[in-house]
Each structure stands twice: as C-alpha cells, then as structure tokens.
C-alpha cells in the first residue's frame, strides 16, 4: 500500500497546478471529458511524461525515480498486449525486464494467471484472445509485479456491458484482496460510483471537484454541472 501526493503538477499544454492526495489503499475514480488531462495525470504518476511539481509516494519524492523503479502497475485503455508473446510471456514481461529469477517468474505468473482465471490461455497469442480475455491478461500483467499503485486508464471502455461488468467485479475484488492504491480513469459515472471510494473531476487540466460520489452527483460545482448532466447514464 502506498499513498500518493501530487503537489503543483503542471505539464505542457495539459495539467495546471494540480494538487491531489490519494490515500493508501484508496480507489479513486478520475472523471472528465476527453482531453481534460485524465490520462496525463496517470502518466505523471507513472513517470511517463515530463512535468513540473512533485510526485510523492509515501512521502518519498519520486521526481528523479524512473518509471521502471516506481513500482506502479498501469493498464491502458487499449491493452497493447505484445503480439509476439503468448499470454504467459506477456504476463511475465515486467518480471523478466526486472531481472527476476526464472523459477520465481514461473511461480508468480502461474499464481497470477490462476487468480485471474486465465490459466487455460497461457499458451495463446493475443490475436487468439477475445476482448474480455485480453483485458484479463492485461490486468494480470499489471498486477503480477505486486505494484503498490495500480493505474487504470478506461480499461473497460471497449468491452461489451456483460464482460465489462464481470471484470469490474474482479477489479473490486482485486482491490480488496491486494490492498492496492488505485486510480481509475472513466467516463462512466455509474462505474465511478460503483467502484470508487472518492471521485475527482478534472476539466481543462484542473481539478474542479473532489469528493464522494454522492457529493459529486448531487452537489456538483458550477464548472462541471454540464459534464455531470451529460454523463449521467440513462438506464
């Protein structure tokens, strides 16, 4: 578990002086229109983009720590499983890159494949996996290294509702079991409400509101009313 503290984060053309504290073990949803800066916020935490300001994990400043040393799991919207590697090797990728011993890699990957119920897919290449299976493999690849922080960038947006619902349940269960600090980017208010402990709304590179789902939905600040009204799903 790790808490995240962002202080005065500014990036070229996107985030403007963002301050945000995410508690250890918290699942925070990040809401906002396309281009609001949600993915950039995740990239800053992962160290994948240039920024000004301070990123701290458990009060340790991460500014000079490279991505590979930040111990952050990151699941992108399009999973980008490596097409030349089968499921086992895709999941093992981060461990191999980190130079872990072969025996440990085998044990750890098999354990994670079991956890995600995808052991039967371990020899398959990505082109033979369905959308839901790819998502599970992507999730397994992100958690196999036991990250303290898991960043999810609209991981369910390309799935059919039924598969998305199943994986959403698995995510919630994983969050509890592994006690991860999670940031979850989504457009879907219902999804944010179902999953998150708190929701942060970003618009035009700035944090407009932070709080519980109830607080955001029923007492939105002026700047995000239009967004909330447009995003409330009609079900």
């Amino acid at each position: 578990m790790s808490n995240i503290s962002l202080k005065n984060i500014t990036t070229p053309y996107c985030l403007k002086n963002v301050n945000l504290d995410i508690e250890a073990g918290e699942l925070m949803a990040v809401l906002g229109f396309t281009g609001a800066g949600k993915s950039t916020l995740l990239n800053v935490i992962a160290g994948l983009t240039e920024y000004q300001g301070d990123v701290c994990f458990n009060q340790h400043n991460m500014n000079n720590i490279r991505t590979e040393r930040r111990n952050v799991g990151y699941l992108l919207q399009d999973i980008y499983l490596f097409p030349h590697l089968n499921t086992f090797e895709n999941v093992a990728f981060g461990l191999r890159a980190g130079g872990h011993p072969t025996d440990r890699i085998k044990d750890k990957v098999e354990e994670t494949l079991d956890l995600m119920n995808i052991s039967h897919l371990k020899s398959r290449y990505p082109k033979y996996l369905s959308g839901g299976e790819k998502q599970r493999v992507g999730l397994a690849r992100s958690i196999v290294m036991e990250p303290k922080i898991l960043l999810l960038d609209e991981p369910l947006s390309s799935l059919d509702p039924s598969t998305a619902n199943n994986i959403r349940k698995e995510l919630k269960s994983l969050h509890k079991r592994l006690n991860l600090t999670m940031l979850y980017v989504t457009h879907d208010l219902a999804e944010a409400k179902e999953l998150a402990d708190r929701i942060v709304v970003i618009a035009e590179g700035e944090i407009k509101q932070l709080g519980s789902a109830q607080n955001i939905f029923y007492r939105p600040v002026e700047e995000i009313r239009e967004f909330i009204a447009a995003a409330i799903p009609i079900r």
Binding site: A46, L48, T67, E68, R69, N71, V72, Y74, L76, D78, I79, Y80, F82, P83, H84, F93, G94, R96, A97, G98, R141, S142, M145
Partner: peptide
C-alpha cells in the same frame, strides 16, 4: 503505445529495444 506499455511495466530502453521493438 507498445513502447509506453513496456516502459510502464518497468522495462529499460535497451530491454524495450530487444524484447519489443526488434521482435515486432
């Protein structure tokens, strides 16, 4: 995005070159 995914998984630039870019 594949390179970004590999970097996010903790791979160094050399590792990305050998294990992602050249194989792909």
């Amino acid at each position: 995005e594949y390179i970004r995914a590999a970097r996010a998984l903790g791979a160094s630039s050399w590792y990305v070159l050998w294990h992602v870019i050249l194989p792909m």
